[in-house]
Amino acid sequence: MKVFLLKYILQDSIESFKNQKYLNMLSLITIIFTFFIINIFFFLNFNISSFVKKFASNYKAEIFLYETNEKDFDINKIKNNKLVKDIKFITSENAKKIFLENFPSLKPTLKEIGENPFPPSVRIIFKSSNKKEIEKFLKNLKNIPAVKEIKTNFDLIEKISGLKKIIFLLGLFFGSILLFTSFFTIVNIIKIVAYSRKEDVLILRMIGASNFYIEAPLILNGIFLGIIGALISIGLFEISLKLLPVYLKDFYKYLKPIFETTSLSFKYYLYLLLSAIFIGALSSYTSVYKFIHLGEE
């Protein structure tokens, strides 16, 4: 019996959805726009995170040494420090070689200089993410007479992390506003749909329909809006990702080597869909909650 009841409720909600197609369309546009913008923010955040992981996931330091004293710097002492993940000694010759590999066009300039301008150095990759601890460690290294200069990637990491935070906060801010907009649009659309069915609801109540029977089609209407809106926004977003490189060819040519983008994951889209269902259900329930007691005294 319950199966038939659910079937009738589903039929009723599809019927109601079709009958109010223009109102539902308005709601859909808002949802699609909201989720499309949210997708953009998540996409940026996700890709910047990947970039950070790839290029600035670990604190790094390059310790430049005085050539005369390079043997005074004992790598083995540092190697066993708990903060250090990896350490590599680069001789002046190796440094020159690496430079020429990266910038072969500067070979004549280097020849003109005559002597090798690259000092020997030690590259350290830290496993710790405790910046204060690492800074303390580097301060101690600076006191070693063989150390000429220390350069770190701390600024880069902080800048990228800051950018990531800004994008995340912007996403959170605009996403929240848009989600609220969607929420209230669905609330009001369902309210209008419900009020357009006011007479029907009064009749249903009079003949003994349960609140569940009256509420469910309206709540399903909200859920349908959420599902359809989210799916269309995902589709549009994926199409946009495919089309953008075609239309922004030149820009992509420079961007691609350093910033290769990947689309959002299936898991993310699944969460997006579930959020859309939740928003659809919650907003429609909010609007029908008072409505179902219509006419009661």
């Binding site: 019996m1 319950k2 199966v3 038939f4 009841l5 009738y8 007479e199 249903l204 329909a209």
Partner: peptide, 19 residues
């Protein structure tokens, strides 16, 4: 229910019972 058929108007009394 004005937009519905005669059948649907009468059937609704039984549909709400899940028959």
């Amino acid at each position: 229910l004005e937009e519905r058929t005669v059948f649907e108007n009468v059937a609704i009394s039984l549909k709400i019972r899940g028959l």
